[in-house]
C-alpha cells in the first residue's frame, strides 16, 4: 500500500492533491497499536503495583512515554524524511526543540526561584 500510493506518476484522480507520502498500511497501524498498548500498559503497571523504587519508576515511565510518542509519530502520523519533501520532519523537529526548551527551561528557572526565595522547599520526587 505504501508503494502503491508513493508511485503515482500518472496524475491519477484516485489520489488527493498534496497527498502525504502514503498513509500507512494495515500492518503499520497494527504494529503501532501493539507497541503502544505495551508501552502504555508497562508504565500503568509499574505505578499501580509499585514494583520499583519511586525514582526508578519515574525515570522508566518518562522514557517509555518518549518511546511511545516516537512510535505514534512514525506509525500513526507517518512522519518520515520523504513526506512533503522532508518539511514535515523539519517542522516536527523544530517544534520538538521549542517544546523541550519551554518545558525544561520553565521547570529549571522556577525550581531555582523556589529554592532561592521560598522559606520551605517541598521537593516532589525525592521524598
Amino acid at each position: 500500500m505504501n508503494e502503491a500510493t508513493h508511485n503515482h506518476g500518472h496524475h491519477g484522480d484516485a489520489h488527493a492533491p498534496g497527498e502525504m507520502e502514503g498513509h500507512g498500511s494495515r500492518k503499520g497501524y497494527l504494529i503501532g497499536f501493539l507497541l503502544s498498548v505495551v508501552l502504555t500498559a508497562i508504565p500503568f503497571w509499574l505505578v499501580m503495583t509499585g514494583t520499583l523504587s519511586t525514582q526508578v519508576t519515574a525515570i522508566a515511565i518518562i522514557a517509555l512515554a518518549v518511546v511511545q510518542i516516537l512510535v505514534h509519530t512514525v506509525c500513526f502520523l507517518h512522519v518520515n524524511t520523504r513526506s512533503e519533501g522532508g518539511w514535515t520532519l523539519l517542522a516536527y523537529a523544530f517544534a520538538a526543540v521549542i517544546v523541550l526548551i519551554v518545558i525544561s527551561g520553565s521547570l529549571w528557572i522556577m525550581y531555582h526561584l523556589n529554592t532561592n526565595m521560598m522559606p520551605v522547599v517541598q521537593t516532589g520526587m525525592g521524598s
Binding site: 492533491p17 498534496g18 497527498e19 512533503e84 517542522a91 517544534a95 517544546v99 527551561g105 520553565s106
Partner: peptide
Amino acid sequence: GSSTMLGFWIYLMSDALIFASLFA
C-alpha cells in the same frame, strides 16, 4: 490544496507549543 497538508501540519506543531506552555 496541494499545500493544505503541510499547512495543517504546521498548525498542529503550533498547537503543540500551546500544550507545551500548559505542560510547563
